[in-house]
Simulated assay, not measured.
Amino acid sequence: MAIKEISGMDYTFQDILNQIFDKQKRDYLTITELKTSLPKNIENFLGPQPKKGTNKKFIERLKPHLSEAYTIHKKGASTYLLRAPIQDIIHAYIVQKTSVSIRNVSKKLPFQKELIADALNALVQSGAIQLKIVPTSRDYMIQILVPERPDPFREIKKAYDTIRMGKNYVKIFALRRFLNWPKHVFDSVIQSLWDAGVVELQASDPYLLTEDQRADSYMDKTHTLRILLIWRNE
């Protein structure tokens, strides 16, 4: 089902994509799912009748409007648009489970085996996950476990104090890069701190940042780009 038509000059193609992904509660969609979810006013961005024609033609229209955060991948007969790195999508899937096998990750997520292997190796090296070999009746199975993290609020406050250099704020992209957490983990923690009134997340002129810096800032629930983080009562 398509999202409601967005009105107003301030909305961008990026806003439309974010609404679609948020509604689906996933960071990956097939091109067919994306096409059927687009609002009527998408023609303002993609030209007349973008939903008609082949997926290949649609992708050609789509690509010029995508930021660097988006990637396109194929698995089998399906083509997917991703709005987050594969590593983050896999980690987000894993943390929802008590334990999960590599076979299950490969079966449930739309990525080639080589990409899954690279992502899991990187997650192991970063300490975000652990692998456990479990004997079965026929062979062995490798389970993926998520180790308990230290208090994330304490970790983020320590990082804040380290990089602010005497200022009463830090740039969110700098804090994200310093901690190097999976994207969804970092976003969840700073949103929780904001909801609790511990920090303030401020918007600013996004064009003062590079495209990469904007991508590493924080898009809030209202699709406003938050650039600065201020710890209250400091």
Rank of each mutant, 00 (worst) to 15 (best):
H91C: 07
N41A: 09
L131I: 06
T36S: 08
G8R: 03
S217C: 15
F13W: 09
Q19M: 14
V100S: 08
L29P: 02
H223M: 06
D195V: 07
L145A: 02
D220N: 15
K158W: 07
S78N: 14
I190Q: 05
W194N: 14
Y140D: 09
F13A: 01
S204T: 10
I102S: 05
P152I: 06
S99Y: 11
T30R: 10
P48V: 05
Y28D: 03
R103Y: 02
R226D: 00
Q112K: 15
G47A: 05
M165A: 14
G8I: 11
E33L: 05
Y11M: 04
V199L: 05
K40D: 12
A2P: 12
L120Y: 05
D187H: 11
E234P: 04
S37T: 01
S67Y: 11
I86F: 03
V189R: 01
F153E: 12
F178L: 10
V134G: 03
L66C: 09
A92R: 10
V95T: 12
K51Y: 04
P64R: 03
Q213C: 06
L109K: 11
V124D: 13
L34R: 13
Y140A: 11
K4S: 15
T30K: 06
F58N: 01
Q125V: 07
F111N: 01
T32C: 01
K107N: 12
G197P: 06
S217K: 04
A69L: 06
V170P: 12
N18T: 15
L123S: 05
P182I: 05
W231K: 09
S7C: 09
L123K: 02
T30G: 04
F173C: 15
M219I: 13
D216E: 13
N44I: 05
Q143A: 11
I3N: 02
V185W: 04
W194L: 07
D27N: 15
A77K: 12
E211V: 11
L120S: 05
Q191P: 00
R103F: 06
A84V: 09
T224F: 01
